[in-house]
Design a protein around this nucleic acid. Structure first.
Lengths: 136, 136
DNA sequence: AATAAAGCTTACCACAATAGTAAGGTCAAC
DNA sequence: GTTGACCTTACTATTGTGGTAAGCTTTATT
């Protein structure tokens, strides 16, 4: 009683482009689809759920490799939540590091921009900053 | 009286890898170097300064295309600082958008992680969240 | 039934910025 | 006169996504 859908419908159901669905299969984060006689891919409910899982994981910034691990945990009822949490915390730390880096950029750039009149005059502390000082 | 250096020295002087120096030349953000008879690239003080400019711009997250514009402004003494500031503010906005996106990820992921015991038990709200809800 | 439109297939290319490798030429020192 | 450091070009790969082209299948319209 498993309703099977072709890739276009699976895409509409999950919000994942057909292109990406094929790619996920290719890099082994999505279980291979069965095929019709003509070679069309067919997806069942399990695939659809898995695609949702992948999409939400991507939206949280997890890499393909991390998603592979997450999916393995998800499918393994014997997992220890310790391992999942560890993966999540590691990713959280990466996110934090990216935020810190971006905030540093923002601060320096904002300081330069504040000093620049932004008119028809050629004087420009932004260019001077990029040319001379060392905004890290 | 312009001291010329080969690419290795230019790299050490600027902190830009030789690989990247060649790449910058190829994509036209760095003026072409002159060559020795044997074909070795030779860099002068202007090149070195320009490489510093590029490195600092990269560190602030500007793309190659943006850096091309910045360099054009820098070399044009008739520039209007308005244009430079506009470019900088646009980039600042992109940085802010990235920060906002990352903070959203962080919040959702942190919430999931907080609910997860992270022990040898298989129960895992992180996986449940990825599987079921919509942590956009 | 014939044809058109929509949907699917694989196999390419492109992106942005960086790093790595291989095969080979050059230069300086010992 | 050989070794080792340095340089050259030309590839390949990365990450995740989008695009295109050429061709087959299925569905809808006439």
């Amino acid at each position: 009683m498993d309703k099977l859908v072709t890739i276009g419908k699976a895409s509409r159901l999950t919000g994942v482009s057909a292109k990406m669905i094929r790619y996920y299969e290719e890099v082994d984060v999505l279980k291979k689809a069965s095929r019709t006689d003509a070679g069309y891919r067919l997806y069942n409910q399990g695939h659809i759920q898995q695609l949702g899982f992948i999409r939400r994981s991507r939206n949280l910034g997890f890499s393909m490799t991390e998603i592979q691990s997450l999916l393995k945990f998800w499918l393994d009822t014997d997992r220890e939540s310790r391992n999942v949490k560890q993966l999540a915390l590691r990713h959280l730390q990466e996110i934090n590091e990216k935020i810190v880096a971006l905030e540093k950029m923002r601060e320096i750039l904002q300081q330069l921009a504040d000093k620049c009149d932004g008119d028809d005059n050629p004087d420009c502390p932004i260019l001077e900053g990029l040319a001379q000082r060392s905004p890290q």
